[in-house]
């Protein structure tokens, strides 16, 4: 199993909504950068390809950051630092390097959407598990009075949930690979 983009996965998934917000922001950046990079890849000499990709990706991230700050201030406050960090998310650069620069614009857009949706889904699931166990709520709706198992909202809980979900995933996909 390939494990990429761990920093936002562990950092932002304290609730399902935060995980989803982060996933969607990454999805938008990933799709847009895939489209642009696949369109301009043949005009970029090989030796400056990584800096060019990074410039394109960071431009999109900054645009998303400004838009989110203006129109979704509450989400921006919770995600804060993790938005600029999308620039160095290995998934985004990884897809640019492994897929977008060799394929057509349409294929790259689909690739970005697919990978982005998968990332959003996994962040939402991790966030949901942590939110249910840690704060006793479901997408912000409290079904439990008082605190849950606090460790799940803190950093160690992220590792625990991630490990358990990966174990589950491996169990489910066993024998198929």
């Amino acid at each position: 199993m390939l494990v990429l983009g761990m920093c936002p996965t562990l950092g932002t998934t304290t609730s399902a909504l935060n995980g989803m917000g982060m996933g969607l922001a990454t999805l938008v950046v990933l799709t847009l950068s895939n489209i642009v990079i696949s369109a301009v890849a043949r005009f970029i000499p090989d030796k400056v390809r990584i800096p060019s990709y990074i410039v394109i990706i960071s431009a999109f991230v900054t645009i998303i950051q400004l838009l989110m700050q203006a129109f979704l201030p509450s989400l921006y406050e919770t995600l804060g630092l993790f938005i600029p960090l999308i620039v160095v998310n290995c998934i985004v650069l990884g897809r640019a390097e492994a897929f977008a620069n060799k394929n057509t614009v349409l294929d790259s857009a689909c690739d970005g959407l697919g990978i982005g949706l998968g990332f959003t889904l996994s962040l939402t699931v991790i966030g949901l598990v942590r939110e249910i166990l840690g704060s006793g709520s479901f997408f912000g709706w409290n079904f439990l009075q008082g605190d849950g198992i606090l460790v799940f909202v803190l950093a160690p809980g992220a590792f625990l949930v991630l490990g358990l979900l990966m174990a589950l995933f491996n169990k489910l996909t066993q024998g198929r690979a």
């Binding site: 000499p45 060019s52 410039v55 960071s58 431009a59 900054t62």
Partner: peptide, 25 residues
């Protein structure tokens, strides 16, 4: 065919991308 990695090509492409991104931002 990809563009050759000559100094001129590298300067033009990276500079161009940076310029477009800066304008957009």
């Amino acid at each position: 065919e990809k563009l050759e990695s000559s100094l001129k090509n590298m300067l033009i492409s990276l500079g161009g991308i940076a310029l477009v991104c800066a304008l957009l931002l």
